[in-house]
């Protein structure tokens, strides 16, 4: 198997964790992986049926917004040089704003609703999508664009048949970063103020000194992130199957 080495490292890490947790023997501070899994099983109904759907919904809505908004801005910038000159620096600068510090403000504005989490998720996933889509759209070679023109192509032909396909690999790279960030975004949003969700649950358990129950939702979040990443990687491989041939 391709991932044998990574799997081994994770196993070694979990084993060391298990051993040290047992030695320290303070489950409310450092629960062992086995304790966490047991707690995960005990809490499975509430975790998977109550809190997971809430978090997933913020992730999906946030990602959808980011993809639509990010791609639209990327296309706009690629088609219009003055728009690009005006927006691109702002985009970069916007990343210097500490989003996590901004998150409480969203809670203030949007309350404990799902929208404050969506806002945080959009704010951190929108950048990698926009920048990668834009870089992809502008990665075309001038020679090829001119070849299209000598065939009588319109600007629209060049965009749809050349710029878009050449941008796809870049777009997917951005999306892979974005899906992992979206999980973090949603969790942070819930942490700061929510009535449900895995981030909210984890934090609530902290106040109850239930270490294993703090970690259990984090395990689930990690798994969700990995799953989303694998999904995007799979779609990417299907859509860009020409890249594996040579």
């Amino acid at each position: 198997m391709r991932n044998t080495a990574s799997l081994l490292i994770v196993l070694v890490f979990l084993t060391l964790w298990e051993i040290s947790a047992r030695l320290i023997d303070k489950a409310f501070i450092l629960p062992s992986p086995v304790q966490i899994l047991v707690r995960l099983w005990e809490l499975k109904d509430v975790l998977f049926l109550v809190h997971l759907p809430v978090t997933l919904l913020s992730i999906v809505i946030g990602l959808t917004f980011s993809i639509i908004l990010g791609t639209a801005i990327a296309v706009w910038m690629s088609q219009n040089a003055s728009v690009q000159r005006a927006i691109y620096p702002i985009l970069i600068a916007s990343q210097m704003v500490p989003v996590i510090a901004l998150a409480p403000i969203f809670v203030l504005w949007l309350g404990y609703t799902i929208w404050s989490k969506v806002a945080v998720a959009v704010l951190i996933t929108f950048f990698p999508i926009t920048v990668n889509a834009f870089d992809g759209l502008s990665s075309g070679k001038r020679e090829t664009e001119e070849l299209f023109l000598t065939m009588g192509a319109t600007k629209k032909d060049v965009f749809l048949k050349y710029s878009v396909p050449i941008a796809l690999p870049h777009f997917f790279s951005g999306l892979k970063v974005a899906v992992t960030l979206s999980v973090i975004g949603a969790a942070i949003g819930e942490w700061l103020g929510a009535q449900a969700g895995l981030g909210y649950f984890s934090r609530r358990m902290m106040t109850q000194f239930d270490g294993a129950a703090v970690f259990a939702p984090i395990f689930v979040l990690t798994f969700v992130g990995i799953l989303l990443f694998v999904c995007v990687a799979y779609i990417e491989k299907r859509m860009l199957n020409w890249r594996t041939k040579s």
Partner: peptide, 12 residues
């Protein structure tokens, strides 16, 4: 027009 490099589209 046939350019110096083939400029074939790799995804086609």
């Amino acid at each position: 027009y046939m350019p110096q490099q083939d400029l074939l589209l790799p995804w086609r």
